[in-house]
Design a protein around this nucleic acid. Structure first.
Lengths: 158, 158
DNA sequence: ACGATATGGTTGCAAATGTAACCATCAATT
DNA sequence: AATTGATGGTTACATTTGCAACCATATCGT
């Protein structure tokens, strides 16, 4: 037994990764070329832009990124004067993040880009493909939710 | 206009990436723990195991990996004595790769792991979810095929 | 046969990432 | 209030990656 064939092409993790990479890299090329943003930076901007004032930790949860990625992205966006921090005075460990006017402006432009790209994808992939994909992704997201791992755990993964 | 909301959670590149990461990392944990393999190494092994003798370039195409990733993975597997190279004597630039007995053995064990993981996923995600996902992925793969970018271009991406 | 160009593969270097350790602050227990 | 243990966030260090330059060989045009 266990003798039959195995093809990478039909292995789900491989297929997913390949698709994600393709779709993601193409979009990244857009904002990288236009604004020199990295992916963590773009995600942080998106989180902050859509949900307003929030802490680094919240950004991490919202965008499924590890502490350190968020930390560095926040730093970079701060340098760029696209966001500002402010200490919480009840709990001095945490700081609230907020987009500056420039940051909000950039955010608006970026999500416009994102929307265009998404519809571009919808055209290429086709309505039925998109719908199927979305259904499948929702199912996986449910599994992620159940397993509690949106990425950004402190003690340990495994 | 362009004023309405944008949510990362429903942006396709984000969702795909998140799902791929989740599914991929969990599987990687398996072979990393058991054999200390990296992902490029596992992919190379899988390609070689299923298709037999082939060149580095072919591995790259088969597994959607860039030259350099393949090169380093091949080197690592060679150290481990899981594969051997042999020069093509018609064209001395290219070398053919082949798994050793040990490599084939490892391959068999690994694909057994992979199969188990895949069915585990099928249970978690549910038959209908898997089916939808597969349909969607196929649609994207079609786009990738058309755009010719399976990853591993020489001159340039953009 | 000769130079230009292309191709398989490797390597050096810079940038991105993950991990763990760390700092500061807060909360709970005593 | 002193000790212990979380928690938000940053940083140092090692590993992984991506890119460009590179080497060797092969091909094409002349």
């Amino acid at each position: 037994m266990t003798t039959d064939s195995f093809e990478l092409e039909q292995f789900l993790p491989y297929r997913l990764n390949r698709a994600a990479e393709f779709v993601g890299l193409r979009f990244a090329a857009h904002y990288k070329a236009k604004y020199g943003l990295t992916r963590p930076e773009w995600r942080t901007l998106a989180a902050l832009g859509s949900s307003g004032r929030m802490t680094s930790k919240a950004v991490g949860i919202h965008s499924s990124m590890h502490k350190t990625k968020v930390s560095r992205a926040v730093f970079a966006l701060e340098q760029r004067r696209w966001l500002k921090r402010s200490q919480d005075d009840a709990d001095r460990r945490l700081e609230h993040l907020e987009l500056t006017a420039a940051g909000q402006q950039a955010y608006r432009e970026l999500i416009e880009l994102a929307r265009r790209y998404q519809t571009e994808l919808e055209v290429e992939i086709g309505e039925s493909g998109i719908e199927a994909l979305s259904t499948g992704l929702t199912a996986i997201e449910e599994v992620i939710r159940r397993s509690g791992k949106g990425k950004q755990p402190e003690p340990d993964d495994l």
